Simulated assay, not measured.
Amino acid sequence: MTTTTERTLVNYTVSDGIAIIELTNAPANTYSYEMMSQLDNAILQARFDENVHVLVLRGAGEKFFCAGADISMLNSVTPTYKYYFCLHANETLTRLEQTPKLVIAALNGHTVGGGLEIALACDIRIARRNAGKVGLPEINLGVLPGTGGTQRLARALPKNKAIEYMTEGKLMSFEDAQELGLINYIYESENFWEQVMQYAKQFCPPNRASRTVGRIKRAVQSGAEVALADGLALERELQQLCFQSEDAKEGIAAYNEKRKGNFSGR
């Protein structure tokens, strides 16, 4: 009997309450169904780990965060396979987007096609200065951005700008993307990763009530997609969970005692 060893395409480690999820498929960290399956597993692992408060996604190396789907793979499979591949990728990114823990994309290099679609499913995007381009150029392949790009970009930008960038296949610098609001922060190349981790740690105990951070995310990500009355109902339910938490008791007590809160994530 022979066994095969699955190639590692997603590295998963935990450091100081932060789950680090690294896409690793040289040279451009392109993804296949196998990589998406490993990413899906990493997301679930981070969800269930009560010692994980923040997720950080990054690409291996310095040139690419992710260049999207593996085009040579798409060229060799059937239309039916492609459909289920896109369906699973959509499900994986929705799971990432709905995970009640803050997700930060560390854009260390080019973030194009499906790579930008992954980044758009994250909550905060931090880029390395002068390190690459972002965009959804799938039009050049005769296809549309099919891993959530048409939907998430149109929610991140005015519709006319989203259509412009996708139909023209435009790529833009990180700096231009920040001006449009697609990127939150740009850090200098020197000590980029250390700065990203320092940023992420501020959302972990004892600095922040990390479950409340996750509930704010859930309120926004889920509430923005429903009617206002339904969003307000969701907000009230999440607020009640916050009121019942140890961190709310600590935060209110710290405010009244004029001291800094010492949060536990519970």
Rank of each mutant, 00 (worst) to 15 (best):
F64M: 04
L39V: 06
M1Q: 07
K258H: 15
S72Y: 06
E250S: 07
R7G: 00
E246M: 11
C122W: 03
T111Y: 07
R259K: 15
F263S: 05
Y185R: 08
K159T: 12
A42M: 05
G169W: 06
A177Q: 10
A131F: 04
A209F: 14
E188I: 00
P137F: 10
Q98R: 13
G17I: 03
P100F: 05
T13F: 02
L23S: 05
E168D: 11
P205V: 10
G223H: 01
G109C: 09
R259M: 12
C242I: 15
S264V: 13
K82H: 08
E194H: 14
D247L: 06
S264Y: 11
E188K: 03
E62W: 03
S32Y: 04
R58C: 12
G261I: 02
Y199R: 10
P205K: 01
E190W: 07
N90S: 13
S76P: 00
F243Q: 06
L141N: 14
I18Q: 00
K133Y: 15
N75C: 11
C204N: 00
H53Y: 06
P145I: 02
R259D: 12
V134M: 15
I71R: 09
Q98V: 00
L39E: 05
A26F: 08
D230H: 13
P206L: 06
R128D: 10
G149F: 05
R236W: 07
C86R: 15
S245E: 11
N256K: 13
I124L: 13
W193T: 08
K63N: 08
V226T: 09
G149L: 07
A229W: 03
N11S: 02
A233K: 12
F263M: 12
V54G: 03
Y255Q: 12
I124A: 06
I124Y: 12
G113H: 12
R218T: 15
L141F: 15
R47A: 15
T5N: 11
T5F: 10
V112L: 05
V56P: 02
T24K: 14
Y33K: 02
L116V: 02
A60K: 10
E97W: 04
M73I: 12
S15M: 06
E91P: 02
K258L: 12
R211N: 13
L44K: 14
N108H: 09
T8Y: 03
M1G: 12
V54A: 02
Q151R: 11
A127S: 11
I252N: 10
V54H: 00
K82Q: 15
T111V: 12
V10A: 11
S210L: 01
N207C: 01
L55W: 00
A156C: 09
E188A: 09
M166A: 03
E97Y: 07
N191D: 09
S245L: 06
T5K: 15
T147W: 14
G135C: 13
I126M: 09
N25L: 03
L241T: 13
G149V: 05
I124N: 07
I43G: 04
E97T: 01
P79H: 06
R236S: 13
L238C: 08
P79W: 11
L96W: 02
Q195L: 03
A106V: 01
K101R: 10
Q198D: 12
Y81H: 12
S72Q: 08
C122I: 01
Y165F: 15
M197K: 05
L141E: 09
Q202R: 03
S15R: 09
A19V: 03
I21N: 01
S189M: 08
E22A: 04
I216K: 01
